[in-house]
């Protein structure tokens, strides 16, 4: 888990810095999006890899049954979901801050006359806030990434709790994420694609970010209800 988290924190800024000479970015925020591109492709898979292996080990036998003697199942399970969510939120919050910082401080333009003027506030999701204050945009976006990462980690934990096959539990969030984004694009609803790294579409109203998050919350609620109704003894939690 520590190795995976470190890789996630180090590889994007380093790969962005290495590829900087090959590009002529008009602004350092564009440089940031290139850094984060690969992370955006496999976002749910990365969250799974930093949060789920420890849980898979813990739930690989009847350990969860034994804990019921000592702690209330709902509390035990809630703690596991919360721990996953906090871990993912912290890792991705730090990643976003590091990438913004590296992009801001290492950015350069190859031509001596400098980059053309760009309107950042019309380019990315949430960057409408740039017009109010660049710092406000950076803070809100970093917190948004953390919030969505935490929610996705909670969903990943619930999928691990529900699915009996360990490999399927790890792969399912990525597959479901890809299928959802693909379906939305086919239906010409790419504007509602899943947050938070939506650099592949043009800027949309801010509320569209919350539409995808609401969908994730609905899935989270449904899965939590399923696990709760089975008294926290689903196929993924108790493997006999």
């Amino acid at each position: 888990m520590v190795v995976a988290a470190l890789l996630i924190l180090v590889v994007p800024p380093v790969s962005g810095y290495v590829s900087l000479p090959a590009y002529a970015f008009s602004h350092w925020t564009a440089y940031f999006t290139v850094m984060i591109d690969a992370v955006a492709l496999i976002f749910p898979l990365l969250i799974t890899l930093i949060t789920q292996p420890r849980l898979l080990d813990e739930w690989s036998n009847s350990y969860a049954l034994a804990t019921r003697q000592r702690v209330e199942p709902a509390r035990y399970f809630g703690a596991r979901v919360a721990a996953s969510a906090i871990l993912a939120a912290v890792v991705f919050l730090v990643l976003t801050i590091v990438c913004f910082a590296v992009a801001r401080w290492t950015y350069s333009y190859p031509s001596p006359e400098g980059p053309p003027g760009v309107l950042v506030e019309t380019r990315y999701q949430f960057s409408q806030l740039w017009a109010v204050s660049p710092a406000l945009y950076l803070v809100v976006y970093c917190l948004w990434v953390a919030l969505v990462s935490g929610t996705v980690a909670a969903v990943c934990t619930l999928i691990t709790a529900v699915v009996g096959n360990k490999f399927v539990a790890l792969a399912a969030p990525f597959v479901l994420w890809s299928l959802t984004d693909f379906g939305l694009a086919v239906l010409d609803l790419a504007a509602l694609s899943l947050p938070p790294f939506r650099f592949h579409i043009k800027q949309q109203p801010i509320w569209t970010e919350f539409a995808g998050w609401a969908l994730i919350l609905i899935v989270l609620g449904a899965l939590y209800l399923y696990v709760h109704r089975r008294d926290y003894q689903t196929a993924g939690i108790v493997r006999t």
Partner: peptide, 15 residues
């Protein structure tokens, strides 16, 4: 030698 090795391979394939 762990199940998550397959998940790492998925990440490699996707990238």
């Amino acid at each position: 030698r762990r199940v998550e090795g397959g998940a790492y391979a998925i990440a490699v394939v996707a990238v």
